[in-house]
């Protein structure tokens, strides 16, 4: 479904992604782990369409070239990105924003717009999913939200937008264990055969809650190792040192112990 081939991204002279290859099939959940500065967030933004990178390579979703599209067209094509730092938008009502967003995407897809009343139903279900109260919708987008509330708002948006591909950038950062449980619950509820996800995280902890089909290790702009969820456990025990200090040839074998089922 998502095909990434030899993707590079640079800001000026600084190369961040250096030939990234990844295929994500329908319904799959892929985790991308890596140390700080390895290019995880840049990868997410190249899929979502952020300005300011010089990009080469190929990124297609269901065969459609994403790199040639504006961010809003990618959203219409089914891309959703959960931000590591959701942006505060004072003065813009959350409900109005969400409905405008959903209707923009529906319009782009040639669907009819959803009425305020219908939208309330959609929003209600989404709010239940992330255990939010009604007053969340009445506030300005992320303005004055706590870290956990902002992240829940991201998952709420994902639940409303119903994307084909969700890229969740460090959705677990800054969350306490209860918030993590709620968010993981929301993500798991949104898993489905037609929806793929890329979960970017620094820590293995999130993957206790969201069990990925594949785990990839991103180091210095390249995926240096791929495996199943047990790879995350190896990283938890050994850190990224194996990948940072040695060449690719030294990458560890799949660990045989510590496998959870």
């Amino acid at each position: 479904m998502l095909h990434v081939e030899n993707l590079t991204a640079a800001i000026g002279q600084t190369k961040i992604l250096k030939g990234l290859n990844l295929d994500v099939g329908a319904g799959e959940v892929h985790a991308i782990m890596g140390p700080n500065g390895s290019g995880k967030s840049t990868f997410a933004h190249t899929i979502a369409g952020r300005d300011g990178y010089e990009i080469t390579g190929t990124v297609t979703l269901d065969g459609a070239d994403l790199l040639g599209m504006e961010p809003e067209d990618r959203a219409a094509a089914g891309v959703f990105m959960g931000f590591q730092y959701p942006v505060e938008i004072p003065g813009v009502n959350n409900m109005y924003f969400l409905r405008t967003a959903l209707n923009s995407v529906r319009r782009s897809r040639g669907d009819t717009e959803i009425s305020a009343r219908e939208f309330l139903k959609v929003a209600k279900d989404a709010m239940d999913l992330v255990e939010m109260k009604q007053d969340f919708l009445d506030r300005a987008v992320n303005a004055g939200f706590s870290g956990g509330e902002k992240k829940r708002n991201e998952i709420l948006q994902m639940a409303i937008m119903q994307p084909r591909l969700a890229v969740l950038d460090e959705t677990d950062s800054g969350l306490d264990i209860d918030a993590l449980r709620i968010i993981a619950g929301g993500v798991n509820a949104l898993r489905g055969p037609e929806r793929s996800m890329i979960v970017i995280t620094h820590y293995q902890r999130l993957l206790d809650y969201i069990k990925p089909d594949f785990v990839h290790v991103l180091v210095d702009g390249r995926i240096v190792e791929s495996g199943d969820h047990t790879l995350a456990l190896h990283l938890e025990d050994h850190g990224y040192a194996d990948f940072l200090n040695h060449g690719l040839d030294d990458a560890p074998e799949q660990p045989l112990t510590g496998v959870r089922s």
Binding site: G49, V87, I89, M161
Partner: peptide, 15 residues
């Protein structure tokens, strides 16, 4: 705020 504009566009809003 350019970041806010980008954020909103990733939600499908036209520029």
């Amino acid at each position: 705020d350019e970041t806010a504009l980008y954020y909103m566009r990733t939600r499908g809003l036209r520029a």
